[in-house]
Every structure is written in C-alpha cells, then in structure tokens.
Design a protein around this nucleic acid. Structure first.
Lengths: 153, 153
DNA sequence: CATAATTCATACTAAAATGATATAGATTAA
DNA sequence: TTAATCTATATCATTTTAGTATGAATTATG
C-alpha cells in the first residue's frame, strides 16, 4: 500500500517550484540538483503536472517551469490522484464488476470509507502548508529495506 | 496505492469465519467456495492470520479454522498492517535514511498525517461491523482494467 | 492400525507495476 | 544559427503481486 515515488516526487516538485516562484521559470536541472531526482525522471513527472494545469512551462533557453496556481490552491490529494493509476485503495470500489461479491460486500464499503478518510486528509493539505525547509540534506546512511538503486553507469 | 488482494482477502476470510463461528472449525475448502478464492492461496493467507493469533486451526479430518478473538476485537487496521509489507504510505516515514531530504521535509510529515488518518479509520472498523451480507454473488461481467486472471489449466 | 481429510511449509512462476534510462525531436532566446 | 531547454516515445531491469505446485505433517474415524 505504498504511494509511488511519482506522487512523492510530484509533491516535492511543486514545493520546489513554489519555493522559487519569484525567480522566473525553474529549470528541470535545478530541481534535479535540489531534490536529488534524475533529470530524465523529472521530465516524465512534470508532464502530468502540466496536463493537469498545475504547472506551465516555457520552452527554449531560459525556459523552465512555473506553478500555474497559487500554492494554497494545490492539494496533496490532487497530486496523488494524478500520479496513482488507481486512486482508490481497492479496485472493487471503482470497478465493482471485478469482484463477484461486490454488490453485497460490507468490507468493500469499509474500504471506501477508509479511502475517503485518506483523501479528506490529503485534500486538506496544500502546497502552501509545505513551503520552506525542503532543502536541507543529510547523509543517507545504512539500509532499511532493499529499495531500488539508480543505475551506476 | 492499492491495497494488496491479501488484505482484501484477509478481511473477507475473517468475516467468513465470523459468520460461521457457531459451526465448529471452518475448512479452507468451504471458505474457498464461498469467497471465490483458491484453496492454495487461502492456505497461504491464513498462515499470517494464525501467526498473529487472529485465527486458530485444528488439523486432521474435521479440522479447520476458527476465529481466535471476538469479531468486535479484530480491526481492519490489524489486518492491513499484517498483510501489507509496509504499513506506511511512503517508506520515508519509517525509514527516513532512505531519503536524503527526510529530516527537513515537510511533505514527509504530511504523508505521516495522511497515513495516520487512514489507520484511524481502519482501526475504527471491526469485523463485527462487517458481519452478514457477505455471501451474495453476481455475474461479474465486462472488464474495467486488465487485472490478473487465474491460470486456466 | 490404515487411511483419508485436512492443515502446514516451501518452492516456484507468470504477469504487472515500478522506477527509472535512452534516444530523438521541437522550440526559442541570444 | 546555435545552444539551452522542454517534449515525446521507447526501452529496460528489478521488484512486487498474485497466484500454483508439490509434498509433508497431523489426526479423526472405521
């Protein structure tokens, strides 16, 4: 039940853009450096943000990306819905025909409630709530679970 | 951000056991028939439930499985924590060393809050809340998303 | 005691999702 | 014109998911 890195990174991209709103278009390279996310992956993540009109971009040299809305008008809920292929916790919520029990299953209703509780919280948190203090870096020592490592080539 | 079928099925197993508490040990074969989950997969799912002392089993003929606690004393939160490898929405919550930004990242705190909101809801729902009305079956027609189909052999 | 019904344990597997990287192209300021 | 930048699509390795397979251990019952 993990959120994908896309949602995590998506949120951090917006926080980063918000923190640099005054500086004109922010380039992917800068975000990459500050956030420790590869340029290529960032390019891929910014696209959905553009399609959702959360970000606008300027092409060409001196180009970059800008928040299309005010930080207080963008919520984590929006971001998560955007990046998670399936917003609900279980697919029997949105696709009841997937489960033969669905039309009479109380567990399903409980999953709906829980999903709702989650999004209520996410929708109550805006990018504005998350500004500042996103830049510091620590070492990042020892392992905790395997995790995926970037290719070393 | 999907819950695994293990959690979904785990909850339904307990509801099924609860609904047949009075009938002595419930066999996997019966649960399989009623819930539409393969015997082999059920065997695999019941093990963690046993280890967590939510279920006790009786071996040999006439054996089967029984709820070890009262339905009102088992919550969805327990089940989900049991079956999801990582209970938190993002691993930077429990493994901050995985993310170089973690010690100063407000987004991380927001993910913690959301995780908390989710589990508050799940912990407030017990198996007793879900009893009855888990047996009806419908057709289960047309597709919604790919999904995994059981082998046809 | 034999045997059949059942749970228990471990290994294996195909498909899907995840988290990227690679390559090539379009746009535009300087 | 060219270099900086974004855009688009394809590809890839790894991990996770959702199961299946095989066989062993236990035990009620005749």
């Amino acid at each position: 039940m993990k959120l994908s890195t896309r949602s995590r990174y998506g949120a951090r991209i917006l926080v980063d853009l918000a923190n640099h709103q005054n500086q004109g278009p922010v380039q992917i390279g800068e975000i990459s450096k500050r956030q420790g996310i590869s340029v290529k992956y960032l390019e891929q993540l910014i696209r959905p943000l553009k399609e959702a009109k959360l970000v606008t971009s300027v092409r060409g040299p001196k180009g970059g990306h800008i928040m299309a809305r005010k930080p207080k008008d963008v919520t984590l809920g929006q971001i998560v819905r955007l990046f998670e292929g399936q917003a609900e916790l279980v697919e029997c919520i949105s696709c009841p025909e997937k489960c033969p029990m669905s039309d009479d299953c109380r567990v399903r209703l409980a999953w709906m409630d829980a999903t709702q509780a989650l999004y209520n919280r996410l929708d109550a948190t805006t990018i504005a709530d998350l500004l500042k203090a996103d830049t510091h870096t620590n070492g990042g020592n020892e392992a905790c679970r395997p995790g995926r490592k970037p290719k070393t080539s």
